[in-house]
Design a protein around this nucleic acid. Structure first.
Lengths: 252, 252
DNA sequence: GTAGAGGTTGACGCCGCGTCAAGCGCAAGG
DNA sequence: CCTTGCGCTTGACGCGGCGTCAACCTCTAC
């Protein structure tokens, strides 16, 4: 009981091209060939094809299917690993969707897009040396490129959010807020979120900066007077540091 | 202020190859070229690159990015459509993950894999003509191929589940259950789920059969005595049909 | 003879680049 | 002067899984 390539194709719901492809890559050689190279498939070949298609529907790549079939590799193991791949892919998609949604809400709130000039009041390059020394030229380049890629209005928005945040820190420091209090931790959360929203920030690419990055920055705020000045001096910087450290312990 | 290709690459955190590629496809031509074809990028080009990279991070394909940038296509609209693409992709992944998980549990419960012979007590080919007439040879071929691709134990499992379901229908018919009652609708839900779990069933590829398919089947159960016999006769088949029709009205 | 059905091999295309390969222009060092 | 090396160029292949021509062969039916 042998069938022609078209018969098999119709039977299995695939194209004959697919079957020729599977022959070409050695995944499913026909059980025999006739005059002029015609391919014939017997029941064994058809059953093999069914197993191939079942695994293909699960999204397993063809070379792995071949491994399972030919080297008696552990099918369950292959599927488990494949499940991991699928999960990571889904996570990536979800983060991407979240980004798109954020961008969409920002867009629909009426941002004019495009700018002609950079903001001069916010020279982000002033910390270039510190950044490159701590996290490498790459990190600085990415961050710098990101910043320069924003429109003036976008830059104004970023600067405004940072100013707000800093002002809140200063006010909190003046009132002697406890770093571990709800208020301190809420500010820390805002701060981390701001950091994570800067593309190119060191850390996992899931929108959250790495713990080391945050803590390192926090220490720098305290150690460097230029940073401390943003938070109203050493006391403010210490509040920021303590709050951030406590926050990262809990959340990152 | 012009930069060489390497400067730009480092600045933006991409490879120079990528920049040459973007030039090649017309997405980002350099602002000028010097001796020997060296590419130079000015601030305008760099800003364009930043916008490109921002959209690329959102997963937008390059040709759509070009459309947004060059034809002033609506960025928000493009992103919304892209979001749809992402959502569908995620749905596909999730269904695939569910399939893989089902297969894994089936595997780890110790199925010996592979079968040598078909079940004879369940000749699914007996309805071949009806199926091909109603839904085309393709649908039958897919369904048939799917069935033949299962191992004996898997086939027994499918047959068992169908037998259970049919027995439940017969019992319900004997007790005079109302098609629109909770019990009738619960059975209909099981029935639809069973139908949807057969790969190759006509309808959307989201694991749910199409409404037309279900209703068509339901009518066939009543019209064809061979099907009706599965449900204990005409009365049983009528119950099944009425329950399925009501169910699809609500859910599909 | 001729048309048509069903088969064959071979090759390009898709998407976004990574990765050689071969060669050019220029500066520093022998 | 030549060599070496860096940075750049163009050109081409490769990836995954086939779709989609193109050009040709073989058999049957009219």
């Amino acid at each position: 009981m042998t069938s022609s390539i078209q018969d098999v194709a119709r039977l299995a719901g695939v194209s004959s091209r697919t079957l020729r492809h599977y022959d070409q890559i050695g995944l499913l050689p026909p059980s025999g060939t006739g005059h002029g190279g015609l391919r014939y498939y017997d029941d064994g070949a058809i059953r093999r094809l069914q197993r191939i298609l079942l695994m293909r529907e699960l999204g397993l790549p063809l070379d792995q299917i071949a491994r399972v079939l030919d080297e008696q590799a552990d099918e369950a193991e292959a599927l488990r690993r494949h499940l991991d791949v699928l999960r990571r892919e889904r996570g990536r998609l979800e983060r991407q969707m979240a980004s798109v949604e954020r961008t969409l809400t920002a867009l629909t709130r009426g941002r004019p897009i495009m700018a002609e000039e950079m903001l001069d009041g916010f020279d982000h390059t002033q910390y270039k040396d510190e950044v490159t020394e701590r996290w490498g030229a790459d990190a600085y380049a990415r961050s710098d490129a990101w910043w320069r890629g924003l429109s003036t209005q976008e830059q104004a928005g970023w600067k405004g959010r940072l100013d707000e945040l800093n002002a809140a820190w200063v006010a909190a420091a003046e009132r002697g807020v406890d770093p571990t209090s709800d208020e301190g931790q809420a500010l820390a959360a805002r701060h981390v979120e701001w950091l994570g929203s800067v593309p190119g920030a060191p850390g996992a690419d899931d929108g959250r900066p790495s713990k080391e990055y945050v803590v390192g920055l926090a220490e720098m705020y305290v150690a460097d007077a230029r940073f401390a000045a943003n938070y109203g001096g050493a006391d403010g910087a210490a509040l920021v540091r303590d709050a951030l450290v406590a926050y990262t312990e809990r959340e990152l």
